[in-house]
């Protein structure tokens, strides 16, 4: 596979690369383009590849004249909270799966796999009723609890794969050296799992950041809305200000892209670790 390819093949390959690249980036480019196009040009120059004028007015107004900051803050709170709690819970469960053999292990793994397969929307009604019964509608905490439960199974498999990559000998050596199991975990295993913990945090953050349907169901008060819900209400509440909406979209993209860059090199490891989920 290393000999010099025929020129036709080389051209074809680079054409294919270019095609993939433009397919992947074009919608994002368009998002950015509309966000920086002045309002009055959006319709007249709708299909131009390049706007004739740039403006950051959309960003300014979306930040200062709408509830954007509140949505953004809510989403940040929910996503960070979910990511932190999920990672903690999943680290424990992943550690147990990786290091112990115990009665019911296969059953638990099976249950976790099943939760990855049944329609989550199936439980949207019961969840709504339970949370309404607890008086927890419009509460960001209830969102965190629900999202955490949704993400724990996948995050557990992910963490398990990271723990599996750390030789069991290390904590046994630590225990021979006088550590309790928890000390071994804290002093030896934890520092070695930091990248894994980071990747899991990133995955869960991105998932929570873009969750829409449950947030839509459970949140109806404006001040508790997360970003996706808030953004959708842009459409219905005001006369649709597309420029502002796209500017908000661009801003919403920033955190997930940051996390994405960080977790990129763990993607393969995560996806091949037995659990396969988007």
């Amino acid at each position: 596979m290393t000999h010099s390819p025929k020129p036709v093949l080389a051209v074809g390959k680079y054409a294919a690369l270019l095609a993939y690249l433009s397919f992947a980036l074009f919608p994002l480019y368009w998002l950015l383009k509309i966000a920086v196009t002045p309002d009055q040009l959006i319709y007249t120059e709708g299909t131009n590849l390049w706007p004739s004028e740039f403006t950051f007015d959309n960003f300014r107004s979306v930040v200062f004249q709408t509830d954007f900051l509140s949505y953004f803050g809510n989403s940040l709170y929910v996503s960070l909270g979910t990511a932190a709690v999920t990672t903690l819970v999943a680290a424990g469960a992943g550690y147990a799966f990786s290091r112990f053999n115990f009665a019911g292990k296969r059953l638990l793994i099976a249950v976790m796999l099943i939760t990855q397969m049944f329609p989550l929307l199936m439980i949207i009604a019961p969840i709504y009723k339970i949370i309404a019964g607890l008086g927890m509608l419009n509460s960001l905490t209830s969102l965190i609890v629900v999202y955490t439960a949704f993400n724990v199974p996948f995050a557990t498999f992910l963490m398990q794969s990271f723990f599996d990559g750390i030789p069991k000998d290390l904590e046994e050596a630590a225990m021979m050296d006088g550590c309790s199991r928890f000390q071994a975990l804290y002093k030896v295993i934890f520092p070695l799992t930091l990248p894994g913990l980071g990747a899991t945090l990133g995955f869960v953050f991105t998932a929570a950041w873009s969750e829409l349907l449950f947030a839509l169901m459970l949140i109806s008060k404006n001040e508790a809305m997360t970003f996706p819900v808030g953004l959708l209400t842009f459409v219905s509440k005001f006369s649709v200000d597309w420029g502002q909406m796209m500017a908000a979209g661009v801003l919403a993209l920033v955190p997930s892209c940051l996390f994405f860059i960080f977790i990129q090199r763990y993607l393969v490891q995560g996806l091949t670790s037995g659990a396969v989920k988007g």
Binding site: P167, D169, E172, A173, M176, L192
Partner: peptide, 12 residues
């Protein structure tokens, strides 16, 4: 004290 086959040195 135990010496492991893999040495089990703490990498960090």
């Amino acid at each position: 004290a135990m010496v492991f086959q893999s040495y089990a040195l703490y990498p960090h």
